[in-house]
Amino acid sequence: MLAALAVCLLIALLIGSVVGPFPLPIGDVIAAVFGATTAEPTNTILFQIRLPRVLAAMLVGGGLAAAGATYQTLFRNPLVSPDILGVSAGAGFGAVLGILLSLPVLAIQGLGFVMGLVTVAVVYALARALHSQNEVLVLVLAGIVVGALAGAGISLVKILADPYNQLPAITFWLLGSLAGIKPIDVAGFAPLVILGLVPLALLRWRVGVLSLGDDEARALGVNVVVVRGIVIAAATLITASAVSVSGVIGWIGLMIPHMARLLVGPRYDRVLPASALMGAAFLVLIDALARTVARIEIPLGLLTALIGAPVFVWLLARSRRVWS
């Protein structure tokens, strides 16, 4: 099944590399990827514009879906998405603040990334400081509180922003887009996403055991506090680096793990790779759609919501078996 999903991802990558405002011949794309020299402008478009964007979509989609699958397992709740602990709101606040301060693009991304990490660190510290018996519940509630605070910060920035220049940029960023991705952006955030995926892949079995609840997981030999801490840090790293590059793209982290569970069952060691592959293929295709269906770029968050909402209703109707 995973091999089939990997093939789907390859096909999606190929489609993503070919379609766009300037369609590239499929033969040239394959030849160029395998090292043949191709004529201009195919070469420049492919390597400077198209491929960075397709790779970014792959990493953002795969990363968000993997983080979503992780949090759903960790919090034993299938309705949880990767921004449950406030990472998107925090990263969003950092990025819009960067736009308000007219920082360069890389600095905006950096500020978004750092604020995403800081937000989750605050949430985690808050939950630990409260010493509750039910650490998971307190963690989620702290995430809601801090996330709401960051949301208020975003609103404040919007009010302060220049309505002709900055406000459209902020709005567009908050809806998510991969337009204007450069090779350097991919080189910057790809290692961070992969760095976050590695511990999740290594701890796949123990994370699955955590879905039985703290007491049972500990009685089965898992050091719950350590594993949960590492996993939250890894999922936060993935989400913060994805959001800082692409803006806020909803639905993927919520919806894709459900589809993965339909295909491979609920075990986390299977859901994690399946979600990553499906999320990657999904966002590559969505992004291809975003730059072809209209003369202007359509924000990715709009498309994922447009597709995600009805698909999720359909999933709810038929996946009752998988999680209830």
Partner: peptide, 26 residues
């Protein structure tokens, strides 16, 4: 009741956790 619809075998396999390396599956 479990949140995720594991098979009986999946649940029993989780009993092997303490015998697995930290990064290993069954």
């Amino acid at each position: 009741h479990l949140e995720f619809a594991y098979t009986v075998l999946d649940v029993v396999l989780m009993g092997r956790t303490a015998h697995l390396g930290p990064f290993a599956g069954p």
